[in-house]
């Protein structure tokens, strides 16, 4: 469990990091190192060089831009979790980050690093998808925004080009009055989710659901929107039957095969339960205006 030889490079700005990425084929960005370093120790990853972005102060910023939360690439999970402005704009961030690993790992690991790592069971990619967010990639020819739906392609695979680095991720603020909830089950506290579900629900004055966004992770090869569930909830008043049906519909989205931690049948049951839980909860808790 020792990594093979690699070069270590420190970038002082995003431009320099992008330049180094092109100059060193086979180089990888080093953010918090909480996923990359173990992978190197297991010799699952053998980058020729690491480009350390931790000293780029611009990337440490959390900004609220047009009510959206923009998170720089060197922002630690823990800083985002404890940031009150981010919480006010999008309380789901704190709710989900609580489930990301343990405090010592959140102290070091970055939220953007987690998005780039793109583990299919990771919470923050799912939250980006759920909230309709995007990442901003910077390459030799400039910047581009990549929406979450297009960014996460497969377990640990994103649409980022090899010569691009992600400079920030933007999590849109929740609509005023929207209900929201996040629920997860993992075998142990802080582990990657066996299944986690997030929900954002808006209700008219008559109590009828006007919009529903539901997403899940841990159940497929990438985070997924539960669109059948969303469609089924809209225009209902969330009767027990409606909620029960939402759970049943959620089961279809499980494509993960049986693994050591969960059979598919159990995962479906779990996803259905968590979906019902978040829908109920989201309908109860509305974001303060």
């Amino acid at each position: 469990m020792k990594p093979p030889l690699f070069d270590y490079l420190v970038a002082r700005s995003s431009e320099e990091a992008v330049k180094l990425l092109s100059e060193y084929p086979g180089a990888m960005i080093l953010a918090g190192g909480q996923s990359l370093i173990p992978a190197m120790n297991f010799r699952l990853a053998a980058p020729a060089a690491l480009i350390d972005i931790n000293r780029i102060s611009d990337l440490r910023r959390i900004d609220i831009v047009d009510g959206n939360v923009r998170v720089g690439a060197a922002v630690r999970h823990r800083d985002l979790e404890q940031n009150d402005a981010a919480f006010a704009a999008n309380p789901l961030l704190r709710a989900a980050l609580y489930h990301v690993a343990h405090v010592p790992i959140r102290n070091r690991g970055t939220t953007v690093g987690s998005l780039c790592h793109a583990d299919a069971a990771a919470e923050m990619p799912m939250v980006l998808l759920l909230t309709g967010g995007w990442v901003t990639a910077e390459g030799p020819s400039g910047q581009r925004d990549i929406p979450a739906e297009e960014f996460f392609e497969f377990h640990m695979t994103t649409s980022r080009e090899a010569d691009e680095m992600i400079v920030s991720a933007t999590f849109p603020g929740l609509p005023t009055g929207a209900g929201h909830a996040f629920a997860e089950f993992a075998r142990r506290k802080g582990d990657y989710a066996i299944a986690a579900v997030g929900a954002i629900v808006e209700r008219g004055a008559d109590g009828v659901i006007s919009s529903a966004r539901i997403a899940a992770c841990g159940i497929s090869s990438r985070p997924v929107r539960l669109s059948e569930v969303e469609a089924a909830l809209v225009d209902t008043k969330l009767s027990d039957d409606d909620i029960h049906r939402a759970g049943e519909l959620a089961k279809q989205s499980v494509t993960a095969p049986d693994d050591a931690h969960a059979t598919t049948a159990y995962r479906q049951h779990l996803l259905a339960s968590l979906t019902r839980r978040v829908v109920r909860q989201a309908a109860g808790i509305m974001k303060e205006s």
Binding site: I194, T263, A265, Y266, L270
Partner: peptide, 11 residues
């Protein structure tokens, strides 16, 4: 005894 086993038992 795993959650999957418990699910198997109750389902």
């Amino acid at each position: 005894i795993t959650p999957s086993m418990i699910f198997g038992a109750i389902s």
